[in-house]
Simulated assay, not measured.
Amino acid sequence: MFKYLVTLVFIIILMVSVASASPLQKGDKFPNVELKGELKDNQIEYLGLQGAGPWKIADIDADYIVVEVFSMYCPHCQKEAPYVNKLHDKLLKIDNSKKIKIIGIGAGNSEFEINFFKEKFKIDLPLFSDADLNINSNLGGTGTPHFFLVKMKDSNLKTVYSHPGRMKNCNDFLKKITNITGR
């Protein structure tokens, strides 16, 4: 009987903690989480990072950063991958300095899974592993996909846009983030 009672209490605590978690919203401080992953030289250069990593979000040389939280097992993320690639390409074309950059964080995904996702969907933007869901937890336990637009200012990271789910239309999403950033 005691075993069942302990199990029931554990399940209730787990349900309450999951129900109370919510993703970061506009105006929330964005955590300066550690980024782990195997990046190509051009991706390290794109982000303006130094050394071999791991890095922190604040190490990225940008005015703003789009952070996509995804999972290789998420069918919506798989369908979204070509549009995220297009968004990355469009940001590269309109933004030749350090204004807006984009990264992906694989929630619950190992480096092996990230590399599989990169190859399968021909992803060129920098992707980082979050195998232990530590980053996801710091972002409020968000579902996938979820997009954050983060203002980077003197290591004071601020969420200026939080978008759960698919972006639906790459051009509309780009217009939304460029309106927010004034670019």
Rank of each mutant, 00 (worst) to 15 (best):
L127A: 02
E68Q: 12
W55I: 03
K175E: 15
I60W: 01
F148S: 03
Y161T: 05
N32E: 06
F173C: 06
K40D: 13
G37C: 11
H163C: 06
N109T: 04
S71N: 03
T178F: 02
Q25P: 00
N136H: 05
M72G: 11
N32R: 08
L174H: 07
N156F: 15
I114W: 04
K118C: 03
K101D: 00
V150C: 09
F2G: 12
D63V: 00
G27Q: 11
N109P: 03
S97A: 03
H146R: 10
S20P: 01
R183T: 13
V6C: 15
G140R: 08
K101G: 01
A131M: 04
S129Y: 00
L8M: 11
I11S: 14
P126I: 00
L174W: 11
V66K: 04
C170G: 13
F2T: 15
C77T: 05
L127R: 06
H76D: 15
M167S: 12
F112G: 14
F2L: 15
T142I: 07
I103T: 08
M15E: 13
T142Y: 02
V150P: 02
G27V: 07
G48Q: 07
M15W: 12
E119S: 12
V9G: 07
L5K: 08
L24K: 01
G106S: 11
V18M: 10
R166N: 11
N138D: 09
I100W: 00
I114S: 08
C74L: 02
D95W: 00
G53N: 08
D130H: 02
I105R: 08
G37K: 06
R183K: 08
L92N: 15
S71W: 01
V18G: 12
F30K: 01
V69N: 12
S155L: 08
K40W: 05
E113L: 05
S129E: 13
A131T: 12
D154I: 00
A21W: 07
L87T: 11
K101P: 00
A62I: 01
L139G: 02
G165T: 06
F116K: 15
L87N: 15
N42K: 06
E68N: 14
K56T: 12
M15C: 12
I94W: 04
R183E: 14
N134V: 05
L125D: 11
D124N: 14
A21N: 04
I105K: 09
K176N: 12
A107S: 13
V6H: 05
I177S: 06
I57D: 07
N32Q: 07
P126S: 01
L92G: 14
P126Q: 01
I177N: 05
K151H: 14
L139K: 02
N42S: 09
K120M: 13
A19V: 03
H88N: 15
R166E: 10
D132K: 07
G140H: 08
A58V: 08
D154H: 14
P23G: 12
